[in-house]
Design a protein around this nucleic acid. Structure first.
Lengths: 191, 191
DNA sequence: AGAAAATCTTGAACTAGTTCAAGAAATGAG
DNA sequence: CTCATTTCTTGAACTAGTTCAAGATTTTCT
């Protein structure tokens, strides 16, 4: 049951009663995505918050030069949405796409608001996970400012060894803030 | 009354009754900081979340080369804390310091938790403002990845003209991700 | 299996931004 | 008003990482 993964994740942060969990379930939708399927395209309004049960999503945009710039990834047990667009329901500047076949549970904007008033504890859960995502984003800035491309790559390989195998190198290079060719040269040196 | 500024900010996002506002006030502390006074030093545990009523705070760290790297600023009506340290009460990797004489209202960790259970609506307020801060942080990454140093500077000047006068250039340069010398050269070209 | 699409590699020429050093200008404290 | 501190500027030498282009390898699809 995909929704069970989400409940388990929620329980780690906020305790719910059986009844509350039942109620929560009625707000959730489930979806299976094929590799390369889009959840959001630049210009569209982001209408849902997505929880990855199994698989991998990426958020990216296309630069003026026409290359893809990776912003973030979400793997098992991570939420992914464009809060900028989701919050005020304005067109998004990002794409969200499945990197591999992916199962998600999602909550759309309206249901999320209803859920917050019905079960205020869910708002606590999101306060906590968004706070953690924000803290991680600040740390990412720190790495980008301080470390060289090579250092960032080595550090990333140590921190997420499984992940490095899972996404194409050019996506990882872009996420780390350098060109695909440069990543190829780093690897040539190290192997 | 400095706390009145905060109440006004909160009201923009979540409506409170008079009684609730009274209760909220009892959790808040007020403090005046002299220019260069520290709220947090690297290695200390971050015990409070700070709301700037008037003035300016900066968050930064010292790189291996011994230079200051700016992470963010907070001016009037912004919250500032190191959520990484605040959340799990581990030593911080950042400094928070007043750039000019600054008045703040602050909530310490324990009071914040108490407040969340006493008035769940305050947790909604923080969910909203942290979500906005997170969205802004993602946009900042976008600018850093896509724009050249010069473009980022010009864009920043357009977006926050008053602010550019207010902080030393070397802090702004560091915040924008390049050296103080380079900012000096950009300005020489444009004026 | 075989063709097409996607991904990775390599080298050469290049550039945005750094580093160092030293002086000039502005601001602040007594 | 003056001395000390902080901030800003400028030029020259340098480097981390880019861009372009073309070929090699791997994966995917039928």
């Amino acid at each position: 049951m995909p929704t069970e993964n989400l409940l388990e994740h929620i329980r780690k942060f906020v305790p719910f009663s059986k009844e509350e969990e039942e109620t929560l379930l009625t707000y959730l939708n489930v979806k299976s995505l094929k590799k390369k399927e889009f959840l959001l395209k630049e210009g569209q309004i982001c209408i849902a918050n997505h929880f990855v049960v199994k698989g991998c999503l990426r958020m990216f945009y296309i630069t003026e030069e026409g290359t893809e710039q990776m912003i973030q990834f979400a793997i098992d047990n991570w939420w992914m949405t464009d809060y900028m667009s989701f919050d005020v329901q304005k067109p998004s500047q990002f794409n969200i796409q499945a990197v591999e076949n992916t199962e998600i549970v999602y909550l759309d904007k309206q249901k999320m608001e209803e859920l917050f008033s019905k079960l205020p504890k869910t708002e606590r859960y999101f306060r906590i996970i968004i706070q953690k995502a924000y803290a991680a984003s600040v740390m990412r800035l720190r790495y980008i400012f301080t470390q060289s491309g090579e250092e960032r790559f080595l550090h990333f390989c140590e921190s997420f060894p499984e992940f490095v195998q899972r996404v194409p190198q050019y996506m990882l290079a872009s996420y780390l803030g350098f060109s695909a060719e440069f990543l190829s040269k780093i690897r040539a040196k190290k192997i």
